[in-house]
């Protein structure tokens, strides 16, 4: 009892333990799991990161020319680093930075914008698959004609 009263008096003269946050920066420890970053040049577009990503925050948009476009949602990402571990060229094509993600505001349209992208990526693959198949099927349909 007296001990705790003494302790309470002592605490009056001890320095403050909290951080004065907006005025004083919080130092993140080294090795903080931050945003996933991607290098367009080094990537071989094998889609492995897209397949392993638990929340599905990485998508590839299939262009008609055969190229792919990397799309990433930093607000959906859980920063687990599973994509980096799955990447055949880690640290070159895909790596985890120590930048902290800022919270999303309405202008970012973190949800709605991403739903549109998700839909577009899915559609782009389907159309690409159809476009790739059509010449083959045409050839196949022509072949029996040639034989006959």
């Amino acid at each position: 009892m007296f001990k705790s009263i003494l302790e309470a008096f002592k605490n009056l003269f001890k320095p403050v333990r909290t951080i004065n946050y907006p005025a004083q920066e919080i130092t993140l420890p080294s090795g903080y799991r931050g945003l996933i970053e991607h290098d367009h040049e080094a990537c071989i577009y094998c889609d492995k990161c897209e397949k392993v990503c638990p929340p599905g925050a990485i998508l590839f948009f299939q262009k008609e020319s055969g190229d792919k476009e990397y799309r990433y949602n930093p607000w959906l990402c859980i920063y687990c680093g599973e994509c980096v571990r799955a990447c055949p060229k880690p640290q070159e094509a895909l790596w985890q930075s120590e930048t902290k993600q800022q919270s999303g505001v309405k202008e970012d349209s973190a949800n709605e914008g991403w739903f549109v992208w998700e839909e577009a990526c899915k559609k782009s693959r389907e159309t690409y698959a159809v476009a790739k198949k059509t010449p083959k099927s045409k050839i196949k349909s022509e072949e029996p004609l040639c034989v006959s």
Partner: peptide
Amino acid sequence: QEAISGNRVQFDYISIGGVNR
């Protein structure tokens, strides 16, 4: 914990076949 796993609450430290860091 933050220094080991890289995050304060969601550690995501354990994966099938080992640990991540």
